[in-house]
Design a protein around this nucleic acid. Sequence first.
DNA 1: ACGGAATAGTTGAGGGTTCAAGTATGTTGT
DNA 2: ACAACATACTTGAACCCTCAACTATTCCGT
Lengths: 152, 152
Amino acid sequence: MPENPSPREQDAWRGLVLTAQLLEATLDRQLQQLEGIPHAYYGILIALFEQPEHRARMSDVAQRLRFSQSRLTHAVRRLEDQGLVERVQGDGDRRVVTVGLTHEGLQLIRRAAPKQAAEVRRKLLARLAPEQVEQLAEITAVLLEGLEEGWR
Amino acid sequence: MPENPSPREQDAWRGLVLTAQLLEATLDRQLQQLEGIPHAYYGILIALFEQPEHRARMSDVAQRLRFSQSRLTHAVRRLEDQGLVERVQGDGDRRVVTVGLTHEGLQLIRRAAPKQAAEVRRKLLARLAPEQVEQLAEITAVLLEGLEEGWR
DNA sequence: ACGGAATAGTTGAGGGTTCAAGTATGTTGT
DNA sequence: ACAACATACTTGAACCCTCAACTATTCCGT
């Protein structure tokens, strides 16, 4: 028998959902304005940037970002159109496609990342007490577990 | 001079962003499957449900949900097509449009809401310790402040 | 070695969101 | 009274994501 949520749980839940929506929307608008790409695409560039030689297999990127393959394919096509990323043919398994940052993509990251990080810190993280940062890291880790496992 | 984020801040930040993305995606998939509407539209129905007579002005709904007017217009059109919602002409100011739940919309809420709440509780909130729920409510309240004020 | 299943990625259609522009109505200052 | 501005909402195009096929390649059991 599922017990009803407590009022405080409702507060937390509503806060979380609203935060999730607003956070995505805000980051999206910001990056779209500054760099002409949506936040999700910025995530792709960052993920590549963190990889050795700034490149990785499609499916690895997809898994890391929790993108569907289809979504990633579409996204990479657009990023390629903008010259930020390029597809490289792998030597071995001919099914795999490797994506890498172009020079232009690399420049975008170098330009945008510090600004982005500072902005986030100034407007969001800095408002939290140090122990709240700690708590947030904990809490999101737990929630992610719950979100990862199939759910349905 | 913006100080660099601490490693723990990065954990919190990454966790938050991933949680936000995954949460939206998960709720979306769930409601799309069960009720044939995206999570955002479910939010509209809930917002109306909580209003006296289950109806409200377009702009009030938009403000409460942080939707753009355009987004809400499109959304309401589709919800109307599905018979879940109806536009009512206001008596006074002829610019305002009032949206109300139809009988069918009301039924959908009554059917879906308890299931939805239980699911959320079981898969997410129940994993958190009571003090973490408290902390999450606190933290999201702070973050929402930061997200509300223009940002740029 | 061969047929079937699994894996990697792509494609196209359909739906949702954004952004800029547009319509209609109300309010305000003079 | 009237022009200028503001408010409430709508429209259409461009873009992004999802979902369900589909292609191409590799793996596996016999």
